[in-house]
């Protein structure tokens, strides 16, 4: 009675195939102007003609470099601050209102300030991506550490654990599932922000690559391929993070 996973995958593939084929046919059939919206095969062929694989790889690596640096800074700071604010009452009392005030400000709105503080170079991009990762992670870490089952804390206390030992051996692992969810959300957000940051002020990276194509009235094909490439990168890295966190918490926490 229970349908297998293979049939699910086949259905999914069928769905993708229908959309791609439909798109291809619409363009080939003349219903859509290929200059405005090229078909998948046309877009790919044209992009391959205009850009060398090495150029694309270079832009991709730049984007990944920025996102990894900014994300790591944000995730580490978010974890430390969220845990500290949730575990130590005094720290929480001061930090929470500040975080709550700043959290609703979208990371992109910090771009002007980032430029004022860090100039137009890499640090301002790191900073924006940092913010994108920081807020989801800090929230998740705070929620995770404040919702640790009190009975676990008591149990650990009966074995003589307290202070930092209690935090490291009980608080952190208990908060890990929430924290990892936040990290995954943070990564996704960082990704979306990176492209925006590169659209506005950059001379390399995938965001720059597609915006530059538009500004120089180049080919829509390159833009379409670029957008797709960014989406696929996002998807693959998200799966990798999900798989890694599942490896760590999957057996004891479940899905």
């Amino acid at each position: 009675m229970k349908p297998g996973r293979t049939s699910d995958i086949l259905l999914g593939l069928a769905g993708v195939a229908i959309v791609v084929a439909g798109w291809e046919l619409l363009v080939r059939g003349g219903a859509v102007d290929p200059k405005l919206f090229p078909s998948p095969t046309m877009a790919f062929a044209e992009a391959a003609e205009r850009l060398s694989a090495a150029t694309v790889a270079q832009h991709t690596l730049w984007s990944l470099y920025r996102i990894v640096v900014g994300f790591l800074l944000g995730a580490v700071a978010g974890t430390v601050i969220g845990i500290a604010a949730g575990w130590y009452r005094g720290i929480g009392l001061v930090l929470r209102p500040i975080i709550e005030l700043l959290r609703p400000i979208p990371p992109l709105a910090w771009i002007p300030l980032a430029i004022i503080w860090f100039g137009l170079g890499e640090p301002s991009k790191f900073f924006i991506i940092f913010l994108g990762a920081f807020f989801p992670v800090v929230t998740a870490a705070y929620v995770g550490i404040t919702s640790v089952d009190p009975v676990l804390i008591r149990a650990a206390q009966t074995f003589g654990l307290r202070g930092p030992g209690l935090l490291l051996r009980v608080g952190l692992p208990a908060a890990a599932p929430d924290l990892l969810t936040g990290i995954r959300i943070g990564w996704g957000l960082a990704f979306g922000i990176l492209v925006a940051a590169e659209l506005i002020a950059a001379d390399r990276g995938l965001g720059f690559m597609i915006m530059n194509e538009r500004n120089t009235t180049g080919s829509v094909a390159v833009i379409v391929v670029g957008i797709t490439l960014i989406g696929i990168l996002n998807l693959i890295t998200d799966w990798a993070i999900a798989a890694a966190s599942q490896r760590y918490i999957g057996r004891w926490h479940g899905r």
Partner: peptide
């Protein structure tokens, strides 16, 4: 997964 703002040029 497509970053919304990456659609800006398009």
């Amino acid at each position: 997964s497509i970053a919304t703002l990456s659609l800006l040029p398009l």
